[in-house]
Nucleic acid binder design. Structure first.
Lengths: 351, 351
DNA sequence: TTGAAAGCGATACCAC
DNA sequence: GTGGTATCGCTTTCAA
């Protein structure tokens, strides 16, 4: 049985408060008595106040929760998520806060339970599927939170980018190069759809908010050159992974009239697309590809993409949470993005 | 003020136990009463039992802590650490446990406090500097832990590789290719040393256990061809980062008789070395480089390296912690490594 | 300076 | 099936 603070108090012959003070309020007792207490505690094998009990009493935990959709192990698979996490970690450290990584089960009930059971002081919601349901659960707990993906309600803490206009700029780059017949590639485009080409009547039908915004941005640019939504091929990948991107794009070869460019909703998917297209000696070679995020691998791969500040996003999110601005307007941070043109995009090949 | 379980009990007109049962022991009351309780709770805005209070009472938290040396944000910078973490996350998920990431401050006192204040059920110690001090603190708390780097005490949970013989195999590969004058590259080789060539009298002086073992393994192989320890150039990098590796290696150019090969203690450092050497048109081109870990970037870079199963390491570590084997012998898992030869290593250039 | 007492919010055993 | 009661381990006024 581990000794408790109480046991130490009895051993030394002082009250519990005094022992407590010895640990967290050294100025409340004589250095001498404090020494005696600490010494006895050590001899008894008392490791200091129990963190859980302390949290209960003090009313805060000293940790913030980062909520991830789908399996947590995926989080580390996506380099952009890792960058985001790096930023969060950095800010958390500065505020002496730990990071609790919380994977959200796919089912709504499981997700709610995960949120309800997490011992944290606040949540950082990274790309949640059922964002609204989750936010409601968090609100129910009365804890602060910051979101990154969905459009926030007024008053909510938020940090993000203008997904739609960023996507638009990537697409505009391609329309300027003459591309008209293109494929859009995202994951979770429609629930339960098999990988490959998809019929999507309306962008608004796409449930995942980030994917929806990016697809809408792509469509915006093509609309201005007369290519309307239904004429765009939409590909869906089963996951946001390189392999899934490759798998989805390989379906294109079956098409009678393959596109001249692929616009992906993430770099990971785009790199998967490049894997397939570059392996294809003929047709694939000429196809332009654009990504989104500008992860480290994008540079050596020569991937044209949208660059967004991943670490800063994470850092801002955690800072917002741990050190909330008094001014509500300062609670929503819009980060800049830039189009980075590399070798993966070029003019439509003459054939 | 958030409503408590007690308030709900009063509102419904039942005892606290009954409300508690409604949440965690549905079979202990009529479905009807349970419904009534849950409904009232929802109306009152009660989000369910407080996780902290529950943990205190139940005696366990539902989270394991992963301890990292130095700044937590570094953890995500090292691809091998990310792989390890992925494995840990995977196993934790399977056991319905969350992951608390804990950065260890550099000072011993801060590190101890971090360990003492973490609300977790056990620790996974990833590459700690003052490993022994930290393990003692953990033992003081009476919590289980698993280590990955240092040689474990009998009875301790451990998962790792044979660092020394793995390093030996990389070095043997180079001696077979005729290399005799080489540089060893590690980080934290000697405390407070500036980046660059270093005088190390004895491998045993290197404080960081993993670095020490790997350097010793390198030395082993060279000893068998008559190159004794003091004739090996030892380079130290300030961090385990690509940039630091590059910085350390660039010091080599100043040497009167530059080495024909660089043996790095990690892939990250090795890639940094390659950055410098490949940029150098003349001498650098012919220098062989080997790494350690076999991270994803090693493949495209053509880096010869030691491959170790990162995800499996993490997975085993977490599993050991969450589902301890009854048999003590099963508590120490030795993982296999292999030498992967790629283009970064070759015969000594004739000059 | 020190100590007594009142919780923090919940759970679990054991009678009823 | 339901409720009383003790307790988890600590912090924090407030009075002595």
């Amino acid at each position: 049985m581990k000794p408790t603070l109480r046991a130490v108090a009895e051993a030394v012959g002082v009250s519990r408060s005094t022992v407590s003070n010895a640990y967290c309020r050294p100025d409340q007792l004589s250095a001498q008595l404090r020494q005696r207490i600490l010494e006895t505690a050590r001899q008894m094998g008392y490791a200091g106040p129990d963190p859980t009990a302390r949290s209960l009493r003090r009313g805060f935990v000293g940790a913030i929760g980062v909520l991830f959709t789908s399996r947590l192990s995926y989080a580390f698979t996506d380099p952009f998520a890792v960058r985001f996490l790096t930023g969060v970690a950095e800010a958390a450290e500065r505020h002496d806060s730990n990071l609790l990584l919380i994977p959200l089960p796919d089912d709504a009930t499981g997700a709610r339970r995960a949120v309800e059971n997490a011992a944290v002081d606040g949540f950082c919601v990274y790309c949640a599927g059922d964002e609204e349901g989750i936010l409601d659960t968090i609100r129910g707990r009365g804890l602060p939170f910051v979101t990154t993906s969905a459009r926030p309600r007024a008053g909510d803490l938020w940090v993000g980018i203008d997904e739609r206009s960023a996507a638009r700029s990537a697409a505009a780059h391609l329309t300027a190069l003459g591309h008209r017949k293109v494929a859009l590639l995202g994951h979770d485009v429609l629930p339960d759809a098999p990988a490959g080409p998809l019929l999507v009547d309306d962008v608004a039908d796409v449930p995942h908010p980030t994917t929806r915004d990016r697809l809408a941005g792509f469509a915006d640019a093509f609309a201005t050159v007369g290519v309307a939504w239904p004429d765009l091929t939409v590909l869906t990948a089963t996951d946001n992974t390189r392999a899934a991107g490759a798998a989805a794009v390989s379906e294109l070869t079956h098409l009678p009239e393959p596109p001249t460019a692929v616009l992906a909703c993430s770099d990971v998917l785009a790199l998967g697309a490049l894997d397939v297209l570059r392996a294809d000696g003929g047709w694939g070679r000429g196809v332009s590809v654009t990504g989104f995020d500008d992860i480290a691998e994008a540079t050596p791969a020569g991937l044209t993409t949208i660059s967004q500040p991943g670490e800063a996003k994470g850092r801002s999110a955690a800072t917002l949470l741990l050190d909330p601005p008094v001014d509500a307007a300062a609670g929503q941070i819009l980060l800049p993005t830039t189009l980075v043109v590399r070798s993966s995009s070029g003019p439509v090949p003459r054939s």
